[in-house]
Design a protein around this nucleic acid. Structure first.
Length: 264
DNA sequence: GGTAATGTTAGACT
DNA sequence: TAGTCTAACATTAC
């Protein structure tokens, strides 16, 4: 689930559960998810400290320690999520990292497919730069958005999903944005008029914000959206046509062949 | 048993 | 050189 709106919900979840408690225990269950930090170093950085605040950049969640002590950085891959448990027994399956607090509760980072990543950043901004991430999709203004995408020869779907251009959009939400703007995902960015690009920008903001409001729960999203119908048997909520599953960038893109014509 | 799944990335290619 | 594309990564469910 973890695209920008999902990670924003994880951020709010941490804010509501795990702040301002002293970390007693740091247990790395799967070493493989660590990026650029050893289990020993991670434990040493975290133990005895508290999570003071959180913020999100694209799909990355930063859990900041008090007194500028650096941040625990979480990336959720395709299957990652967080769970705050009152005791260690309620731990979800595939827990890869477990933080134990002085009040006896735990924060578990789970990811079934091991594509999630855990890192430690002494400086959040430097970390973002090192990883080559573009500006956060919700923080990005129209003018820089236009400049970043300008004249790209790749498809609009690939461009929206490129974390180096702008950070936070993945397969699901790029489909949703392009469906709402009625643009075919294969369309080359350079072929889009400025007016259409502007529509894409505005729709991107609206979709991301509303998805957060809906708690990323498809059943709460408007029925006019693609997302609640996004499966191989789904029908277009606008015209009733059977949805098409196409390949863009090695990923399956869902679209309505009637509403999203090429060269439209 | 083959295929696909909400992500990233190193290396190949143009 | 820069931009773009592909395969690989690990695991489970249908």
């Amino acid at each position: 689930m973890p695209e920008l709106p999902d990670v924003e919900i994880f951020k709010r979840y941490v804010d509501a559960t795990a702040l301002h408690q002293t970390i007693k225990e740091v247990s790395v269950k799967s070493r493989q998810i660590l990026r650029g930090v050893s289990p020993q170093t991670l434990a040493q950085k975290l133990q005895g400290h508290q999570l003071a605040s959180t913020w999100r950049h694209g799909k990355c969640l930063f859990l900041q320690l008090e007194e500028h002590g650096g941040s625990l950085v979480l990336h959720f891959g395709m299957t990652g999520f967080l769970k705050y448990c009152k005791d260690g027994k309620a731990m979800p399956p595939y827990t890869r990292l477990l933080l134990g607090f002085s009040n006896g509760a735990y924060l578990a980072f789970a990811c079934q497919r091991m594509l999630g990543k855990v890192a430690f950043a002494d400086d959040d901004q430097a970390y973002i730069e090192e990883r080559g991430l573009g500006p956060d999709a919700l923080a990005l203004e129209w003018e820089p958005f236009k400049e970043r995408l300008a004249a790209k020869r790749r498809s609009i779907k690939a461009a929206l999903m490129d974390q180096g251009l702008l950070a936070g959009i993945g397969n699901i939400y790029s489909d949703e944005i392009l469906f709402q703007v009625r643009v075919h995902p294969h369309t080359e960015v350079s072929k889009l008029s400025e007016a259409v690009l502007h529509q894409i920008y505005k729709t991107m903001r609206a979709v991301l914000e509303q998805a957060i409001q809906c708690q990323v729960d498809p059943t709460r999203m408007p029925q006019s959206w693609l997302l609640p119908h996004r499966d191989p048997k789904g029908q277009c909520p606008s015209c009733g046509e059977a949805l098409l599953r196409d390949k863009v960038n090695q990923r399956s893109a869902y679209l309505c062949p009637n509403c999203q014509k090429k060269n439209a």
